[in-house]
Design a binder for these strands. Sequence first.
DNA 1: TTGTAGGCGTTATCAG
DNA 2: CTGATAACGCCTACAA
Lengths: 360, 360
Amino acid sequence: MTGMTPRPNASSRQRGTRGPAPTSVANLRDVAARAGVSPATASRVFAGSPLVRPDTRERVLAAAEELGYVVNGLAQAMMGRGRRSVAFVASHMIGPTFAAMAAGAESVATEQGNLFIVSTTGADVTRERDLLETLREQRAAGILLAGSTATGAAVDRRIAEYARDLETIGARLVLCGHPAVPGVPNVLTVDYDQVGGVRAAVNHLTAAGHRRIAFAGYEPDKTTPLQRLRGYELGLRDAGLALDPSLVVECPNETEPAEHGCRDLLRRTDRPTAVVGLTDGVAIGAYRAARSLGLAIPGDVAVVGFDDMPLVVDLTPALTTVRAPFWEVGVRGARLALGLEEATGHVELPTELIVRQSAP
Amino acid sequence: MTGMTPRPNASSRQRGTRGPAPTSVANLRDVAARAGVSPATASRVFAGSPLVRPDTRERVLAAAEELGYVVNGLAQAMMGRGRRSVAFVASHMIGPTFAAMAAGAESVATEQGNLFIVSTTGADVTRERDLLETLREQRAAGILLAGSTATGAAVDRRIAEYARDLETIGARLVLCGHPAVPGVPNVLTVDYDQVGGVRAAVNHLTAAGHRRIAFAGYEPDKTTPLQRLRGYELGLRDAGLALDPSLVVECPNETEPAEHGCRDLLRRTDRPTAVVGLTDGVAIGAYRAARSLGLAIPGDVAVVGFDDMPLVVDLTPALTTVRAPFWEVGVRGARLALGLEEATGHVELPTELIVRQSAP
DNA sequence: TTGTAGGCGTTATCAG
DNA sequence: CTGATAACGCCTACAA
């Protein structure tokens, strides 16, 4: 027995018994029927095919209008004709840094007709993994992973795994604001020159005569603190100075812990004459610490930040900091993810020291 | 002639001739074939159905593993089983305000298993319309429109049209940070108490003895400036003061234009003793203007902002401002959009005056 | 220029 | 517990 059942014709088929969620009233068949043409012809109209007689086209469009027809992008996506998604994944969605990267990526992704998906992991590896799996199920066109990660072979393996899995759906993984991951193929990275930025800041300080320069905001085994510490170290070396571990303040990248750390640092009799903060937020912790100890900036202690957040120019004194092209990082990341530009391994955009009063 | 053609069996069908983008190697039929079961059974395994014998389940999972099978979420979406999308639409993606709203919305949307789509319109009505059309094609579950809009019947009509169109796909439109749109059904609004926030600020100033209070950052025909101006007016009235139009500075919501506007204002011989800014950014324009004129804050002129952006507490003097629950606005907006809570017309969350040194 | 027929990958139904 | 079958809404090779 072949089991063939007569197929109900379009107009009499009942909706909602089995199929997809009743999200729309009319489908292409309904429109075609109303216009007195075949679904194929109606499809051609919406695809903008030139192979349709103008008056036929008119009739189809009129029918669509009357029925309130909206093409089902989900069905198109399944056929490979619909929009694909570009995803931006970060641990949190706070701070001007991430916002600027996301904005840059969004502008490219949307301009290319993609959907732009934003999601956060809360720095939870399980959520990260689930999220990437979901994006794989969605057949995402590209995925941007933004921000610092932990360092180490385990993380590299995880990233390699992501990239390998994404490859099966033809998607590319791009790490933004992250150094190159050596030995892991198919992972693209776009970073800004974190090492050079901090190095330039330290050079600026040593040129002004500073010899005891502290670095605040270090955290072991995280890519961003490690890179910036490296810049600090190179900057010192450029001036023939040795790195004094007691001048490296370890604290999370937040203002309050940084304030505590810097207070201990600045209370010492052999206190540094300058503090380089991991970020502007850390630099502001240094501001607060200095203020609470009655120390003048930059007279008693100079302070430098990183990121050039919007308001730091209005602090008293205005903050000397390193400006990074976050928006452009997002743009390049998205372009790489979408294959709009040739992948050349690692992209690194320049940073710029913005000298203001806190370290003139 | 009925035109029946023998259907090629699963394993011999050739890929890539017609179908969807070759985004995956294996599909459900491949997995089923490898496991020696029917596609239906394999589907049940991935759907987590209990109606599968454990050893059958094992075989299917093993086959999937071997083939690198990833369920096609696009096909699931078409069947109404896949993830839906929640969209967050704003004119721009900058500023802690929007970031916080988006973060709140994202947390709810993602937690509920939705995809979170972010998109910007650049304040362009055509882009906005196209975007909403695209989201309709994608059968979005809900759409959040964030931020101020122009006022007027034309805008209300446009919003009503969006809401009506979205209704056909069963999606809800929620306006965030926007006052209620009277007379337009099916549009939900979530706002924070902008009027009350500014009013409280003005009350605080009048209680401190201020009689000449300016409002900077007004723009006609935009919901946010209008609401905040209304709070200003009510605050004055509470103290029996009349609104002096010459004390309302009209300028865009940015620091530099605000600086210019405030400079003109503060140069006058009958200058105000206090300035209420539309936003913290405008308040900072007032700071710069005062500084450039050698006026002390709060001695010569008190300043109040709105938003409580991250760094304003570190300004000198620390900025008195109105704190609004942007994150919660995003959360409530997403919950409403997803129907997780009963829609009660308009939701308004409380704001809070944060008194600091700029207006003690 | 238009229609026919079949397929995309998944799921629901219903019979076994 | 499993399988055959028919959708879902759309697209396209091919025939007319």
